[in-house]
């Protein structure tokens, strides 16, 4: 399902990242980084994640000089059970809230819902936000954080960070012009340490549908970015698109998981993952490049593995999803 928008703009963004992202190549683009440890002065990983989101939302309100009452709606999601980080962070704000979950594709789902509200004039503005935290995600999905197991090279590393965008109906330099809601794709992969292979077909399907629905070629965009496929998932996507859909994106394609970290120097295996991996990259580096005119048209395609540890133990394969959002510098 592809929709186009005429009146949806990005007013501002806020990003706060952790220590590993601070050591990565995008460090200078983040608004703030918390580099002492991953607790941020809190007593648990979960509380640290809540603080991260709370601070990110406060930061975007500060940056745009807005009070709670000036914002119509906030849409947010994260990786915790019951999306606890969003729930507990946003209880501090006096703003209507929609909580969503699409794993690492949460940011684009939020942008699509927000853009629809604004386009339909149901809201004048809307904050979309997401957060993830390396150690709270480890605890949620894998083993205790201090527990070490040998991991394959295809595994990814959850990004620590909070990212928020303020969408508005007032004209600014960058607009959201179209979106494509993706389908759940499950190619029968059961390897939780190879999420790139799990999610690549979902990204491919969404990119193909988006281009087909709008009758565009891949080179319409200066850059197509996926969320967190990692080094190996990237190669799978490029070749899969070529083989199955006869689309060549090799010239203008990159993946946030490999942009946010230096995968050769940092101990992150195949790259970053988590909802904040793509959102941090978009809200810091990509939008800055668009502001300064180096990129004009960007297709943002975060990818999410919609897997539940319980269903994984019950031997189910891993479902994946990707939603596309087209961003353009307004003429």
């Amino acid at each position: 399902m592809t929709n186009t928008y005429k009146n949806v703009y990005i007013e501002n963004t806020a990003t706060i990242a952790g220590i590993y992202e601070h050591e990565g190549p995008l460090a200078k683009y983040f608004d703030k980084t918390y580099t002492k440890d991953l607790y941020f002065g809190e007593k648990s990983w979960e509380k640290a994640e809540i603080k991260l989101l709370k601070d990110t939302i406060s930061l975007i309100l500060d940056k745009t000089n807005k009070k709670d009452s000036d914002v119509n709606l906030i849409i947010s999601g994260d990786l915790q059970n019951q999306i606890a980080s969003s729930d507990y962070a946003i209880r501090e704000f006096d703003i209507p809230f929609l909580g969503i979950y699409n794993a690492c594709a949460t940011s684009s789902e939020a942008m699509i819902i927000g853009a629809t509200f604004i386009e339909n004039k149901s809201a004048k503005n809307c904050i979309v936000s997401t957060v993830s935290h390396n150690t709270s995600a480890e605890k949620q999905y894998r083993n205790p954080t201090e527990y070490g197991t040998p991991k394959p090279e295809t595994a990814t590393f959850t990004t620590t960070g909070g990212a928020a965008l303020l969408l508005t109906n007032k004209r600014t330099k960058i607009s959201i012009t179209a979106s494509t809601v993706g389908k759940i794709i499950d190619k029968g992969v059961k390897d939780v340490n190879h999420m790139g292979a799990v999610m690549a077909p979902a990204a491919a399907d969404t990119i193909y549908k988006h281009l087909k629905d709008l009758d565009r070629n891949p080179d319409y965009y200066d850059l197509i970015i996926t969320g967190d496929l990692g080094e190996y998932g990237k190669k799978i996507l490029v070749n899969y698109l070529k083989k199955v859909y006869k689309l060549d994106i090799s010239k203008n394609y990159d993946d946030c998981g490999t942009m946010i970290y230096n995968t050769k120097k940092q101990a992150v295996l195949a790259g970053g993952s988590g909802p904040s991996c793509s959102a941090l990259t978009l809200c810091s580096y990509i939008l800055k490049e668009m502001q300064e005119g180096r990129l004009k048209k960007v297709l943002y395609v975060p990818t999410g593995a919609l897997f539940s540890p319980t269903m994984y133990f019950q031997k189910e394969s891993l479902p994946a999803i990707a939603h596309a959002v087209s961003l353009e510098v307004a003429e």
Partner: peptide, 12 residues
């Protein structure tokens, strides 16, 4: 099945 074979080429 074809996909599982396909990804093997790009998996270390």
């Amino acid at each position: 099945e074809q996909y599982q074979k396909f990804i093997k080429k790009y998996t270390p």
